[in-house]
Design a protein around this nucleic acid. Structure first.
Lengths: 233, 233
DNA sequence: ATCATTTTTAAATAAAGTTCAATAAATTTA
DNA sequence: TAAATTTATTGAACTTTATTTAAAAATGAT
């Protein structure tokens, strides 16, 4: 009955759930399917997780943990200026969400939940199954961790002179964080039905990162002639 | 049997649905409740809307229509430079989502759907109820309308010299659009449980807009001494 | 080995979206 | 105007699926 045994079982369920959520999404994934994939009876899942929402929150928790790890690695990268760390952070975040679409989805939805949770009246209307979820409660404690690291990175950039000196680290970080989140929601090549306008994913990503870079520097890096305008930095 | 009569009935249902979705969210709102609020039997809703998803897509469609109207009004505002139009656009968008949290939610979730829809393999795994929804099909045709107007606004700003000449309108608009979407997802005062860091909503919004402004101008507007750093522009 | 506790299962329950058959109302046709 | 047909409406039946539960199996302690 050891705690290790329990952890192992929980992980088996979680792994099955993540795979299914990633393929079919939360609502299309049935508890029957999770049980089948985890090779156990449906009832047992309820022994390890309070309900389906709790299972999803466990996924979300894992997402935030990996996100924190991603931030930490960028922060630890030696010999980089602050502004270059931000560029690296964005690139890594884009890779992260590309490989773990599911995680990004869960992070997004958790942010929506936080918006409700932080408002007294709205909190009362929240799904009780979520509020009761043990994993949700744990998320309340850790979900700011990545942001804390991000703010440190901006501070570092202001101090080392690679960013505008008037930047306020908190606001600047959350602005960039907004961009990253929004970018991921829109990601993919932009195509209109009639192909009126089309932006390749590469061009958009490059342009996106360049704009953030310029914003942090406070000056446009180079005003090149039209001909080679497309190149980066 | 006039089409007008039908429109009226559809509107009654839609109004009830929007109110409930706004209060309780999509999944917590039951078709029974919608029927009750719209003062009709549950079955009748299925006469006017194909299914619950279709009803939600009708809400989303309304959201995009109002969003387009918001963009258009900004574009029509006379005597404004491009960069000021963008500032106004962001301010209006923030008001819009504040008043219509529900609409913003539906816009966000639609963007998530588009990400799936634009990928052949993922499209096959989408909920058939969504793919069959007539309102979803209509959304496919109109959802780019606001963005088209936004791109025009950026072009205008580059032409009138109020923005950096090297900006690519499409990429720049979608970057700002990302920011707006992400900002709304994070919106509200940022508080850590232990109050370690706290940003008031006002400060964040002001700082957020200023950063975009600087990004578009290409130069920092003013490097004021620390003391009055908080003020805008 | 027996008892208590934990783990596991399979079936029962219940909530909610969807369908359907029957009825009422409205419109068209004769 | 009366009959026929189409449209609108209802309430109950159907179906799917998350959740609960009672019982059985496994595990561990005395």
């Amino acid at each position: 009955m050891g705690a290790l045994e329990r952890q192992k079982k929980e992980k088996e369920i979680l792994t099955a759930a993540i795979q299914l959520f990633a393929i079919k999404g939360y609502y299309s994934t049935k508890m029957d399917e999770v049980a089948k994939r985890a090779k156990m009876s449906k009832g047992l899942i309820y022994f390890y997780y309070k309900n389906k929402e709790d299972l999803y929150m466990a996924v979300t928790k894992k997402a935030f943990e990996e996100l924190k790890e991603l931030f930490r690695e960028v922060q630890k990268s030696k010999g980089k200026t602050g502004v270059d760390m931000v560029t690296l952070l964005i690139q890594n975040f884009i890779s992260f969400t590309e490989e773990n679409k599911m995680y990004h989805e869960s992070i997004l939805s958790f942010m929506g939940l936080m918006d409700q949770y932080n408002n007294e009246e709205k909190r009362k209307l929240m799904d009780p199954l979520i509020l009761e979820s043990p994993n949700f409660k744990q998320l309340l404690e850790i979900h700011h961790d990545p942001a804390k690291l991000g703010i440190q990175i901006i501070s570092h950039g202001v101090r080392d002179g690679s960013m505008r000196p008037d930047l306020q680290p908190e606001i600047t970080f959350y602005t960039i964080w907004s961009m990253m989140i929004g970018y991921e929601r829109l990601r993919g090549p932009i195509e209109y039905e009639n192909k009126e306008v089309k932006i390749s994913q590469e061009n958009w990503q490059t342009g996106f990162i360049k704009l953030i870079h310029d914003m942090l520097k406070g000056t446009v890096q180079s005003q090149r002639p039209k001909a080679i305008q497309g190149s980066l930095f």
